[in-house]
Amino acid sequence: MSSPSATARARELLGVGALTNASMTRWLNGLPGVDQVGADARAAGLGTRSIKTTSKAWAIDTAIGMIDLTTLEGADTESRVRSLCAKAMAPDPGDPTTPQVAAVCIYSDLVPVAVDALRGSNIHVAAVTTAFPAGRATMAVKLTDTRDAVRAGAHEIDMVIDRAAFLSGRYLQVFNEIAAIKAACAQDDANGAANGAAARLKVILETGELATYDNVRRASWLAMLAGADFIKTSTGKLSPAATLPVTLIMLEAVRDWRDLTGTQIGVKPAGGIRTAKDAMTYLVMVNEIAGDDWVDPHWFRFGASSLLNDLLLQRQKLANGRYCGADYVTID
């Protein structure tokens, strides 16, 4: 079921002849623990950084460029998605120097709409699949969901892990599912992915359900082992969604993973990041925990909707020197 390459690499990293749940459990349990209080304190400390003037202007534009502008509602319509795509391409119609966002993030069935609306731009289409947000469906459904999105032109797939399997210790099952979805992202048929390239796979850990930082670390490593291109905190459908300490732990994970394997993996906090100040704190964290290489939309994203407008308001304040109001930015 899982791709041979992911399995082969996992065997090598784990130093085992065959991947078993037991060997995977041993490996994950062998990761260093996370002290919750210490991790919280470190995140809070980074939260006291003060980003002013030129660095603030730079950070605002960088953050805008890292946004996966998101709508994930049952009520999403074609026009709602088109409207979101318009906003993604011209976040501030009054200021053409405003950067575009990185991607729009939508349900998989709306991918064709977004692909069409964003044609000609560099903005990616990201689709949530695998029976998002609960992930409660058969593997066949999850694979079909994913393949459909990729075929429809999604550049990025945001999948959810099976939290039930993870929490009950069926790590091999989680691994296999991620690896299988990864393989589905790579499929390339006649109507295949744009540019013929594989879609990048973001693996949503739904850290709010994993509850402990130790679990967040293990899930991060498990996802990376199985072939994730990105690890993502949350679906945004439950609280807590992204938090600074959880993102801190995931940034440590991708940093350590690159040290171990040489492969760079992206990080995407999603949900609950609403203000420019929040975004700058996250950027500080990326900068100081993972480092310079991750300060790039290719390696770090914000899954957000209302964040964009706050960034735009702050951007206008910096440009005009006066505070702005909600009526001066577009709602979508």
């Binding site: 919750q36 209080v37 919280d40």
Partner: peptide
């Protein structure tokens, strides 16, 4: 002697 330890989940 005073001993500190964090309390976390």
């Amino acid at each position: 002697k005073t001993i500190w330890h964090p309390k976390g989940g």
